[in-house]
Design a binder for these strands. Structure first.
Length: 861
DNA sequence: CAGGTGTGGTAGC
DNA sequence: ATCGCTACCACACCTG
């Protein structure tokens, strides 16, 4: 296995090669030679002062094989520095005269290096000039590895590898986030204040506007939105291109967001983080176009779908033309988003985040689960504080019920459409090929349709599929009835999801058996089992009664067995696994039927000859552990023998809060990406407040289009094949402040220097959580967690346990008294809680949020 | 070896 | 068209 560094390096190479490939595809570059001035007169005349930009513009018909590369030449070379410079720039590369150790040169070109230089350049890829020359001759980017100056054996620690990918569309790149800020933005700011200047005077700042570039090129013209209309699209060149470019420019006050909190040095970003025009950041290789050529946007009409398609088709490389080159990711997105339907469902829509979360089933499932977990914990805590009798006899038999709706979404939605119950039905947003099937009824399953499947596949299996829409509100209601029924049973309850729960009813069953639950008394065991079956049966009746839907129940002596029994129980049934059946039952299951075993572990097991659970028993524990790791190995060893030590209802406190979106992400400039990240951080901050926690560590998650992935993934507005990048930063102090979180997140995003158009997914996460305030905990914890899903009257007992009682209490007191400088824009948590109405308005769910309390309180322990 | 970070896998419909 | 979330665990690898 390669190291992460090597893996990233591979990714970079793939990407570089991918670019070369993209560029070759669909365009004829034959005959274009270095300099490539032959087409010059055919091109629009451009007033440019910047030599590199000029050269690029003149030679954009050359294969842009060095796109994404930023080179620096060291020492005497053959060909000369000037010639290499021309070669690189005329083929899409970036060039830096100075190597200040901070800008992200991707390659250093040198014929040879002194030992000292080798050390100095240790973090760069050092290649021979022949790499450039040969690549140009070949018309494609050759692997730089073949032209290493430093021996293969020597570990070249390449700049930026640790940041993920070095090579991006950007001609220059920022240093890694860690390089700029050791721990957080604050510390870097401190260093700045101490006069640690980072830029040698002669070196241009990495992301500053290129000197000599006409100013109007770098500033903004039109925000991209559905409002952007175009009158014509004469191809992707001349005016059409100019339109797009204009639309892609940043808005004028790009740094306004950083200036608004003007209350001290702390809030000002370090100079190198200043927002810069998208042009210099994301589109360095593009020939600049005069804005004067852009007709006023208001004069244009929307494009017809055919026109969009035609444009995108050109992008796909169908038309060989010396004039045209593949669109950049930003150009592509700009065209895509001209389609109002696309714009509405993507980041181009200002209300995107709200709209998205309102419709995302996975978001709902996750938040429901978190809510339920919090409530059940509160309940358990309340219970244990009132009755201290939870003394489980060790070694006694246990009876666990796993209860679950049959095709939950489908069953609930079908109540409105009873005529379809015997027909194949799925729940999905639409019937397009990439629409995901959230739930399918049993008639549909007979065709092989499965949850999570894309519509395209499902329709191939079953052409007469009926698609019903989601009804999240109805699901919540059904769930409430479900949990009412579950909680009416005497036992320990654990929520698995909106429609699924575990109950440990051992106590009841053993009592019914009339023994201590340990000895082998057949009569007792029989009576225990019958009791469990009877409980299951009554739950099924109760839920059917209240919801009109079927639930199935698996019964076993531990969670594992209850879970696998449930598989056999479905649909509309129940199944109890007797102790003497356990080994035979489990043995015939495939390993991927075990909880926690899916395709990845399944594949690993297959490689060592394991397909069925019984095969696991043939392996010794060491073999299993060496293949899967110590924990997983041990767990599967146990599982295969029916052993599962986990208890129902084990309390786990929340360790992270996050918000991410990996669909509909289509930016056409850096500013949009950053604005979106800020919105995500606002959302995250809101969720922190709702959960009454603050976080000390933030992680930014980024998905970027894989080098070999097309611009448009098979799923509409989906993320397609991506590389993922995570970076975390430890904040000096735990916070909920969206401004602070946003700055850090944006800073990390920038440090990668990705082309905004290639971003496909973004997320922010807070960890190292601390409780927010003591007051909060006693007044409204329960409320905050029950705002959305409520099956029970709020308990009088706080739901959250302080993480560490002693220190936390201290911290509460101090933070309460201390007049810490209030950061701009920071909501006062106490204030927030004192005025819950403010919070109530925020929630995403439709309809009145607080569900009627009376209906849900059926049982009081 | 205890601690960190980043990556990957899994679960729910 | 389409709504590919989110919390948690485990692991690999690194540092001191």
């Amino acid at each position: 296995m390669g190291s992460r560094l090597e893996k990233n390096s591979d990714a970079v190479r793939k990407r570089i090669q991918g670019h070369a490939f993209d560029d070759e595809e669909g365009e004829e570059y034959e005959g274009s030679t270095f300099g490539g001035f032959s087409d010059y007169m055919r091109r629009k005349k451009l007033k440019l002062q910047n030599l590199d930009a000029d050269l690029r513009a003149q030679t954009s018909q050359n294969p842009q094989i060095f796109r994404g590369i930023v080179a620096h030449v060291n020492g005497y070379t053959q060909p000369s520095l000037a010639d290499l410079h021309k070669l690189i720039v005329s083929h899409g590369g970036g060039f830096l005269q100075y190597l200040d150790g901070k800008t992200a040169v991707t390659h250093v070109i040198a014929s040879q290096l002194t030992p000292k230089k080798k050390v100095e350049f240790a973090k760069y890829r050092i290649v021979k000039p022949a790499w450039i020359v040969d690549s140009v001759k070949a018309g494609k980017l050759l692997p730089w590895n073949d032209y290493r100056v430093v021996d293969e054996g020597v570990k070249q620690k390449v700049l930026g590898f640790e940041n993920g990918s070095v090579v991006s569309q950007a001609s220059t790149q920022r240093r890694g986030y860690r390089d700029q800020t050791e721990t957080s933005w604050y510390t870097s700011q401190m260093r700045h204040e101490n006069g640690d200047t980072e830029e040698p005077p002669e070196a241009p700042p990495p992301f500053a506007p290129e000197p000599g570039k006409p100013r109007e090129m770098q500033s903004p013209v039109i925000p991209a939105s559905p409002a952007v209309e175009a009158d014509d699209f004469p191809g992707v060149s001349s005016i059409g291109e100019a339109d797009l470019l204009a639309a892609m420019e940043d808005v004028p006050d790009a740094d306004a967001s950083f200036d608004e909190d003007d209350d001290g040095e702390l809030m000002r970003p370090p100079p190198r983080l200043d927002p810069v025009p998208a042009r210099s950041q994301s589109k360095p290789v593009l020939p600049p176009v005069q804005s004067a050529d852009v007709p006023p946007i208001t004069q244009r009409r929307p494009l017809t779908p055919e026109e969009y398609n035609a444009m995108l088709w050109q992008d796909a490389g169908g038309q060989p033309s010396a004039q045209k080159k593949p669109l950049t990711a930003e150009e592509h997105n700009a065209i895509l988003l001209q389609n109002p339907h696309m714009a509405k469902s993507s980041t181009a829509n200002p209300d995107f985040i709200n709209q998205y979360y309102r419709e995302s089933r996975l978001h709902h499932l996750s938040t429901w689960k978190a809510d339920l977990k919090a409530q059940l914990q509160a309940r358990a805590q309340e219970k244990s504080s009132t009755q201290r009798t939870r003394s489980k006899a060790p070694g006694a038999r246990r009876y666990v019920l796993h209860i679950d709706f049959d095709s939950f979404f489908a069953a609930v939605s079908l109540r409105q459409n009873p005529h379809l119950v015997d027909k194949p039905v799925v729940i999905a947003h639409g019937s397009g090929p990439g629409s995901e099937i959230a739930s399918c009824n049993y008639p549909a399953r007979k065709f092989g349709v499965k949850n999570g499947m894309w519509m395209k596949t499902a329709l191939e299996l079953c052409s007469e599929l009926n698609v019903l829409p989601y009804d999240f509100k109805a699901y919540e209601e059904a769930s409430r009835h479900f949990y009412d029924s579950i909680l009416a049973v005497e036992g320990v309850v654990q929520s698995i999801s909106i429609d699924e729960a575990l109950i440990d009813v051992s106590e009841q069953c053993i009592k019914a058996g009339g023994s201590d639950g340990k000895g082998i008394s057949e009569g007792s065991i029989y009576r225990e089992q019958e009791k469990a079956k009877q409980i299951a049966s009554s739950i099924r009746d109760a839920v059917r009664d209240k919801t009109g839907c079927e639930v199935s129940v698996g019964i076993g002596n531990n969670i594992l067995l209850a879970k696998v029994a449930l598989r056999k129980a479905k649909p509309a049934g129940q199944h109890l696994i007797k102790p003497e059946e356990v080994l035979a039952f489990l043995g015939e299951l495939e390993v991927t039927d075990l909880p926690g075993v899916a395709w990845s572990i399944g594949k690993k097991l297959e490689e060592i000859g394991v397909k069925y659970v019984k095969d696991i028993r043939e392996l010794n524990k060491e073999r299993l552990i060496s293949a899967l790791g110590p924990k997983t190995g041990q767990k599967l060893w146990d599982y295969s023998r029916g052993i599962d030590k986990q208890e129902v209802g084990e309390q786990v406190i929340r360790k992270s809060v996050s918000a991410e979106i990996n669909w509909g992400i289509r930016f056409i400039n850096q500013q949009q990406a950053e604005d979106f990240v800020q919105c995500l951080c606002d959302e995250l901050s809101k969720r922190l407040l709702e959960n009454l926690v603050k976080g000390k560590q933030m992680t930014m998650k980024i998905m970027r289009k894989a080098a070999d992935a097309g611009m448009d993934p098979p799923k509409n507005l989906g993320h397609g094949k991506c590389d993922t990048f995570n970076k975390s930063v430890v904040l000096g102090v735990a916070t909920t402040d969206k401004a602070v979180i946003g700055k850090e997140a944006i800073s990390i995003l920038r440090s990668y220097g990705f082309s905004p158009g290639e971003l496909r997914g973004l997320g922010v996460q807070m960890q190292k959580l601390e409780p927010l305030k003591p007051m909060a905990a006693s007044t409204s914890t329960v409320e905050s967690s029950q705002r959305r899903l409520q099956f029970k009257k709020p308990a009088a007992v706080p739901a959250t346990t302080p993480l560490k009682t002693t220190t936390e209490t201290e911290e509460f007191k101090s933070s309460h008294k201390k007049t810490r400088p209030k950061l701009a824009d920071e909501p006062d948590p106490i204030e927030e809680i004192a005025n819950p109405k403010k919070e109530r308005t925020v929630r995403l769910m439709e309809g009145p949020i607080p569900l009627p309390l009376e209906t849900s309180v059926k049982h009081r322990p």
